[in-house]
Design a protein around this nucleic acid. Structure first.
Ligand SMILES: [Mn+2]
Ligand SMILES: [Mn+2]
Ligand SMILES: [Zn+2]
Ligand SMILES: [Zn+2]
Lengths: 147, 147
DNA sequence: TTCTTACATTAGAATGCTTATAATCTAGTT
DNA sequence: AACTAGATTATAAGCATTCTAATGTAAGAA
């Protein structure tokens, strides 16, 4: 069993344990998320599944994403005014984003605990988490720029 | 002359140099931004000025914010699906945000250059910048939670 | 000062993403 | 097979932001 298949099975088990029904649409959204490496938007999921489910409502995609978020199966990534993206990799990792083509790539780095600690001392906040992304131009877009 | 007043004068000079007309509405939006310490939204600016300019359009606020952004007089802060906030402090600094009340506080920390360098090496991206925010509960909200 | 015009403002429509509503359907249990 | 809480659907609504087209005006020129 491949890694995405395994993650899908685990996710289905988690859903059942939470008393969430497994409908064909829900299964398909989950499956697409688990096998996708590209942090899709709700609309991308909707369009990817419209052949299989021609009558599926876009609300169904949003409803299911909400369910998955609440259970902790996916993460929501928000960037400015464009649409949210969804990440089925819930382990701690950062992202690097291409300013040209919008590509989002996973990127591992030790968690910035010193920053959180200093922020706590300086501001008096009770710190819970942080967010960090790196921006630049991906290799593909660097190549394109040369020609 | 106070610091906000000085910043306003400098900003007006920059606008004139760029060939941008100084209208009463534009002046008021700029003045409000420069004296505000709270990273206002477009709508907050609009509402703050409606006594002075009862006929001002919300589009005027957005238009002027865009002009200021293009010239580099303000920064836009985007958080999830809620509305953008605008920061007249264009010097390098980070933010810490209260999860309870939404307050945004400036917070200085040396720039995370090592992160950018490592990201560049690992991903092959040509890195230009990064974004980082810390989240938690502010002191006021901590006090409220105790009672 | 008056004239001129390119730029700015205004009201309202339009857009894009997301959520709400209410009718219909169905997964999973009895 | 019957039941029902929960899911799906089509559509409307909400919200921040941008667009459009008519009107107004800042600032330089005459
Ligand atoms: Mn990721
Ligand atoms: Mn700031
Ligand atoms: Zn790219
Ligand atoms: Zn607070």
């Amino acid at each position: 069993m491949t890694v995405p298949e395994q993650r899908l099975q685990e996710a289905l088990t988690t859903l059942k344990k939470s008393g969430v029904r497994i409908t064909p649409q829900r299964h398909a959204v989950l499956e697409y998320l688990m096998q996708s490496m590209k942090h899709p938007t709700a609309d991308e999921i909707y369009k990817a599944l419209e052949d299989k489910f021609p009558n599926m409502s876009v609300a169904t995609v949003y409803n299911n994403l909400r369910v998955f978020l609440d259970i902790g199966l996916v993460r929501e990534l928000t960037y400015g005014d464009s649409s949210s993206r969804f990440d089925c990799n819930t382990s701690d990792h950062y992202h690097i984003i291409c300013d040209e083509c919008g590509k989002i790539v996973d990127f591992h780095y030790p968690s910035l605990n010193e920053v959180e600690q200093l922020a706590e001392q300086v501001t008096g906040f009770d710190v819970t988490n942080h967010r960090m992304e790196v921006y630049g131009t991906c290799e593909d877009c660097q190549q394109l720029a040369k020609h």
